[in-house]
Amino acid sequence: MLRIARGWTALGLSLEYEKIGVGPRIERTAIAKIENGRRMIKAGEVEGISRVFGLRASDLLAPDGPRVFLSYADVDRNGEEVATWLSGRGFQVGRRQESEREGFSSAEPDEINSVQAFVALFSPRYFSSPLCREELDLAMKRKHRLQVAGVATEFIYVMRMAETHELDVSDLESYPVTDLTLVSGRNEEATLSNLGSKLMMSARMPSASRERR
């Protein structure tokens, strides 16, 4: 995921690893085997790989991946595909289904306040969903608290799943937007990998205890 997000081939990653000079070069064939699950990454290689991507070794070795809240309308079935993609790469994905919230006046804030990133999958149906709007409002309030506390993180990430003009008429254009309406196949994998790479960086966000509530 991190390699694809940088636009590197296996050879490109091999060369970048060699540049930092932490140990013997990892050949591109070895990288391919690691990615395909046919070879384990060695303990001595983890430090170098993490440095190549600007991460810590603990970021790659953590048994539980970053916690992400995924917000999308129930009728947008491609949201499940994004959730599956993230889960398959180690992210802990949470969301609230609209059917589960029947009779409640607002989204549950605790989960949104405890995750390391919030991902909204925008579509026309997203903005017609009261629950989605409530989740986005809670995320924007959390983002504001993080800013007040001086925590440097994007926190909110937007994926445009279908054409919508909402971004053009609100303050949402200030958030990073990933457009999935124009990609497919290998390009979609690269686009999702780019998002996953950004979420990995958000995972390094300091504890929420620094927020002013």
Rank of each mutant, 00 (worst) to 15 (best):
D171G: 10
L182Y: 08
E163G: 15
L180V: 06
L131V: 05
M159K: 00
T181N: 04
A162F: 06
E166A: 02
N194A: 15
E135L: 01
L195H: 04
S174E: 08
D168G: 14
A152V: 07
R145T: 06
V148G: 01
Y157F: 14
L138Q: 13
T181W: 06
E173A: 14
L131D: 02
L146H: 02
L131E: 01
A139V: 11
A190Q: 09
D171H: 15
F155V: 00
L167D: 05
V169F: 11
T178W: 06
M161Q: 14
E173D: 15
S170C: 10
R142M: 10
A152Q: 10
L192G: 00
T191W: 14
D168F: 12
C132M: 04
L195F: 12
T181I: 03
E154V: 12
L138T: 12
M159E: 00
V183I: 07
G185Y: 05
A139K: 02
K143M: 03
R142E: 12
E135G: 01
R133E: 10
M161L: 15
Y175K: 02
E135M: 01
N194K: 15
L136Y: 02
R145H: 11
L138F: 10
Y175D: 01
K143G: 01
G150A: 04
E188N: 08
S184A: 14
V158W: 00
M140C: 07
K143Y: 12
G185W: 11
L182P: 02
D168P: 04
C132L: 01
M140T: 09
L146E: 05
S193P: 05
E154N: 15
E188I: 01
L136C: 02
E173P: 05
V151D: 05
V151Q: 13
R186D: 13
T178P: 00
I156T: 10
L182G: 06
E166S: 02
E189H: 14
L180T: 07
K141G: 08
N187L: 12
K143W: 10
A162C: 08
E134R: 15
S170K: 13
A139S: 07
L192H: 01
L172V: 02
E188K: 14
Y157A: 03
E135N: 03
Y175N: 04
T181C: 07
T153D: 12
D168W: 13
R133F: 08
M140H: 05
F155G: 00
K143T: 07
M140I: 11
T178V: 11
L180W: 08
L172S: 04
S184H: 13
K198I: 09
L192V: 04
A149T: 03
H144Y: 09
S193G: 15
V151N: 03
F155T: 00
M161T: 11
A149L: 08
T181Q: 03
V169H: 12
K141M: 09
S174W: 03
I156A: 04
V158D: 06
